[in-house]
Every structure is written in structure tokens, then in C-alpha cells.
Design a protein around this nucleic acid. Sequence first.
DNA 1: ACCTATAATGTAATAACATAACGATCAGGA
DNA 2: TCCTGATCGTTATGTTATTACATTATAGGT
Lengths: 132, 132
Amino acid sequence: MAETRELTKNQALVFGVLSKADGPLSAYSMLDQLREHGFRAPLQVYRALEKLVEFGLVHRLESINSFVACTHPHDHSHGLIAFAICETCGAVDEFSDEIVEQRLTGWSRNNNFQLAKTTIEMRGVCANCSSA
Amino acid sequence: MAETRELTKNQALVFGVLSKADGPLSAYSMLDQLREHGFRAPLQVYRALEKLVEFGLVHRLESINSFVACTHPHDHSHGLIAFAICETCGAVDEFSDEIVEQRLTGWSRNNNFQLAKTTIEMRGVCANCSSA
DNA sequence: ACCTATAATGTAATAACATAACGATCAGGA
DNA sequence: TCCTGATCGTTATGTTATTACATTATAGGT
């Protein structure tokens, strides 16, 4: 069981918006949704996101400049996470793969590369969209 | 042996800048370098880059909003390419891994995800920088 | 309660990255 | 020649992210 973390007001607002969304959101779209709650500037969103990512509650999707609430916020076991992003509906699937992780950490070890962070993002069309 | 492709003037200029660089460059830094050659607008760079990426001569690094000349422009065998990006010196190492590719295409098949493009980018500190 | 250090916030301005829209130009094939 | 498709030039605009600086809130020690 992961400990519950106390979020600040802004962090809670941003996390709330992201959690209610059914897919990734850009920082600016979150800002728009939060204007009625007093948000005025991008930095209010970016600062909250920075912390939420740090806490492991939110992931940043580099390839689409967006953010998504973590699907498995209580599972701290996975070191590396891969994402499958549907280019049609925007849905994001999040998964871990031990083998992939081993291969990449192996490469890093062999090449004396001090690995800090790995991004794996697959883009394509999800099952729902391709069957429709 | 890969066929040699005829690049247009702008494509050749952009590719030249990127090839001479010892690491990734942003579109705007290329634009700055090409102003003396008559470039005036970002689109001139972005349009050339789009083609160069399509030709397989250039890769886009999503996590750092930059572009890098392909290290193995004549090797069309690799389907998936991973990058190791040094956060200290900016150097980029490019490699392929069959196993990783199999795992990710396997996941896609199992989940009926029609995979179009995969991004794998590792950030950390390269051998040179960590020994220094 | 009071001080203090740290974290979080508010705000304005600007930097950095990327594309839309439109028209002109150029090259190759019918 | 005429058509067609790709490329190019240019302006404007859209989108994403950060710098800088002042202020406020919070937790911990005394």
C-alpha cells in the first residue's frame, strides 16, 4: 500500500482535472479548465505538474507534449513504463516490460551510460478505433 | 548499398548543418545558422526536416525537441531505433535492439494496437562525461 | 508564541517550438 | 504547350515552456 501524499491546493486541482480526463491533456488545456478556480498563468499548471510527475502520480508524454494521470499510482514496482498512444481517440495504455527494461539497462551498462530516465512511447491506432 | 537521393537545395542545406554538428540541434538553431544562406523563416527548416526524416536521413528526438543526423543512413535493416542522449554534452548514441522491438511489437499484437511509430529515448550521462 | 528556513504561489513578460494560409515558382510527363 | 504535383517564400499566428521577481504559506525548532 502506497502512502497517501498530501497535495497542495494547486497540485490537487491539476491532478483532479487530469484524473477526470479520459486521456492526456496539454498544460494549457488544463489551465483553461482551471481559470474558473482562479488559475491565471501557465506556471501555476507547470509547477503543479512538475511535482505530480515527481510523486509518480502523473506521466509526461514527450511525443505529444501532454500529461496523463498514472494508471497504476499505487504500483511502485515498475521501473520503466511504456505507453501506447492512440492517434485517433487519444487513449493511452500504460504498461511495463521487464525484458525491455533489462535490454535497455544492459545496453547502458555495456556502454557506461548512466541512465537517468527512459521514454518509450508507441503511437498508432488502438483496438477500439481500428475495429470501428 | 542504399540509393543516393537527390536533395533539394533547402534539404541539402539543412542536412549539411545537421551533419556537421556533433550532436542534436533545434530547428531554430539551424535556422540561425542558415540565415546567411538566405533562410528567413522557421518553415523553411521544418519543411526540409520533414522530408529528411521521411527519407531516413534525420531523426527527431522527441524528448528534447531536436533533430540529429542519422548515424547509419545506409543501414535500412533496423526497424526500431533507440537513442541514448547525454544530458551533459548532448551527444547522442543510436542503436537497435531486436529483442526490444520484438517485445513491443508483441505487446501491440496482443493488444490489437496498430503500431505506427515507436520512440525510445534514454537520457543520462555518457561514458566520456561520467569519467571526466 | 516567535523566529526561520523552505516550499509554494501570483504575476508579467518572454523564450522556444511549430503550423496555417496563401501565392509564386519550378520540374517532369502527357 | 499545358497540366500537375512538389517545393519554396513570406507573413502571421498558434502552441508549449521558462525566467524573473515579489509575496505568502507552512513546518520545525526554540
